[in-house]
Design a protein around this nucleic acid. Sequence first.
DNA 1: GATGAATGAGGGTTCATTCAT
DNA 2: TATGAATGAACCCTCATTCAT
Lengths: 231, 231, 231, 231
Amino acid sequence: MKKASPRKTSETAGPKTVAGARAARAGGKSLAPSREARSAGRREAILAAALDEFSARGFEATRLDDVAKRAGIAKGTIYLYFRDKDTLFQELVRAMLAPLIGGIEAMGATDLPVNLLAERLVDLFVREIYETRRQDVIRLMISEGRRFPKLAEFYYREVLSRVFDAMRALLKRAAARGEVPVALVEFPQLIAAPALVAIVWSGLFERYAPLDVRRMLKAHIELLFVPGRVA
Amino acid sequence: MKKASPRKTSETAGPKTVAGARAARAGGKSLAPSREARSAGRREAILAAALDEFSARGFEATRLDDVAKRAGIAKGTIYLYFRDKDTLFQELVRAMLAPLIGGIEAMGATDLPVNLLAERLVDLFVREIYETRRQDVIRLMISEGRRFPKLAEFYYREVLSRVFDAMRALLKRAAARGEVPVALVEFPQLIAAPALVAIVWSGLFERYAPLDVRRMLKAHIELLFVPGRVA
Amino acid sequence: MKKASPRKTSETAGPKTVAGARAARAGGKSLAPSREARSAGRREAILAAALDEFSARGFEATRLDDVAKRAGIAKGTIYLYFRDKDTLFQELVRAMLAPLIGGIEAMGATDLPVNLLAERLVDLFVREIYETRRQDVIRLMISEGRRFPKLAEFYYREVLSRVFDAMRALLKRAAARGEVPVALVEFPQLIAAPALVAIVWSGLFERYAPLDVRRMLKAHIELLFVPGRVA
Amino acid sequence: MKKASPRKTSETAGPKTVAGARAARAGGKSLAPSREARSAGRREAILAAALDEFSARGFEATRLDDVAKRAGIAKGTIYLYFRDKDTLFQELVRAMLAPLIGGIEAMGATDLPVNLLAERLVDLFVREIYETRRQDVIRLMISEGRRFPKLAEFYYREVLSRVFDAMRALLKRAAARGEVPVALVEFPQLIAAPALVAIVWSGLFERYAPLDVRRMLKAHIELLFVPGRVA
DNA sequence: GATGAATGAGGGTTCATTCAT
DNA sequence: TATGAATGAACCCTCATTCAT
């Protein structure tokens, strides 16, 4: 009968680390990686391979066979770590974006002048996202997000809404000081927009017309935070 | 993209009679539509159905069976008009974006004050793209473009580069008059960025946080074209 | 994403016979079998092949590839006629047992002396079931029925319960006339039991110890309908 | 039966120590169970778990993973005791039916009046089989036997043929005394038939129409051993 | 012995594409 | 031209079996 098992939404499988626990108990000092280390390593290898394949071909067109090959494992092994292809994809996106979440909250607290902050933000974006595999993850989010509403919601809830809330708080203060037009408080998307352009552009048109992203973003903040502005 | 199609010589199959059909429709006198008109009608029906399906599910997940059903024809008939699924997709995007091309060139000629022009542009975008099926086409372009380099190139060459060239010419003059910061001349993407945000946002997050696109775009041009700016 | 489509319970697919209707309209007299005839033929071929394979290997162990090969078609073709393997199996059983249903109802009406009737019943069983592929179907029912509760219920409702109801009515009258012990009215299964033995035996032990089924059944009714019995 | 196992020489793997283990249990004095006892215990646990799973799902649909889980051991451990899934199944059936064999031989020796004997037989069947896990084993035999010819042969040779031989001897004497119709001597299956009905019925139709097996069997022997019968 | 992670062949199902009608 | 039945290559997922620890 062997039917596709009804997908429980986005759970993660994974070898229960009984052996790992044992190793820990034993005080494992062996040079050969412990079982749990190997296990974690594999998981990472699969995620890395999946990122490559999903980025290159998109979710649907990616074959798990290729992911396995790239990760240097057998096809079935993937299923020891991820319930199914959907889950693999979602875990990948979550795993790559989760580290961002911590840093975001911090941002709201600062009280630097906005233009300075903006420069740091640009830097952060370029170094932590644009020059990183996270760029690909966000591109995947953009491309495939519609078919993974859970993921879109996660991204919105855990990343975007927080970023925007933090920005709004900040911008409100800045606007009160006249540093920033009030419109930005309502539409923090306007600040982020060029970052989106950067990601989409690099995916589609880079080869026809390269884009100096850092300079573009710089130009953008100079436009927004024009000194003599009357808010 | 599942099977390598055995012959891949010409790019588009089917009666290359869009123009002819149109002529026939205009000049034909028989009440029953002429063969060419019927043919063109079918082609349109297929494209319309394809747009619906591709938009709803993405390229890979779309089944030609469903496209046919929606178009009210048999599956095989699609192959009388389009060589294969890839071609159908590319023709669809091209057909939807082609009408834009004409309008673009015109834009460069004007010499209205940029802020006025910008308002018209916003209006144009909202009415001709955002509130139109073209929004879906551009979203498709964004989502699937990477797997259709030809299409990306077409889009860049026929649409984007022209738009940006026209904008640059215009902005240069405006910058010379001090109406606009010079940075925009180098990065006209900065003007278009919020439009991209609008399209991506509406596809992914509209349900969690609706976005008043028209107001956002308005706010954006007000930011850019601040009157007292020192360029 | 290509997931197993959620199974709608036991519907039957099948090429809609539009073409067939057309042929009918046209008054098809061509010697080549009409499309609908070919279609029906294929359906039969698949069912026949499926019966062979299911009988030989059981439900789970049967590969649809083999069914297709035996039917002389491609694997995918099966899915034009049957939603999935489950459905194929259930349709097979239903199709083979349905013809029995008509004959059953008739039985209750007769008012022959039971021993005569019993002899006819034996004859019916041997000719219509035991010497027929229906034997295999019933064996399949016995072997796999537990995993197809719907089928078991169908079989009980449409076949067994009717047979037993008819028998009970009949036996009651016969018992009233003293021809039959009353116990049989309560347990008509006792009359059918040797038929079950015949089917099970022939599947498992025939090769070690052949069984003369007809004689066994004859002996059985002679045991039951002993003339001088005091009910 | 999925993969051809690379080595198929001996029939059963694992410690052939059932007897040894039993002896150990009887004679061992250490409180911690001896190695053999532990081993035998595991073997029993696996068999018990296998019985549960095979009964619930059938041979093919049973996953050794589930058997292991139910037995509280690791999957690989099964292979220390049984060469493969096939062997496990066959060992299970053999192990469950073996105890019956001893009791059978005894039966032939008695010289009670058959009707009395028959009553004891019914009782034996109900208590030792029908109300026991052996019911499931026999059902498995019936369902899966065809794919295990060796098992069918074993069952026929070691169980059925002996039962029937014993019965025949007995019935012959009884028939000579006029207690029983001669037909039964030729077809002792007729005596066993309702037992088969009981097992099959309880598996398939119990939920739709419960069957009072003990009464049915009682009714059956009353039918067969009618006092005033003229053999 | 015992474990359970890893393997990879296998099979059900889908769907782009073909082709006889 | 139009049809839609037929094809068969793919691809996801399962699970018996192996083997390093």
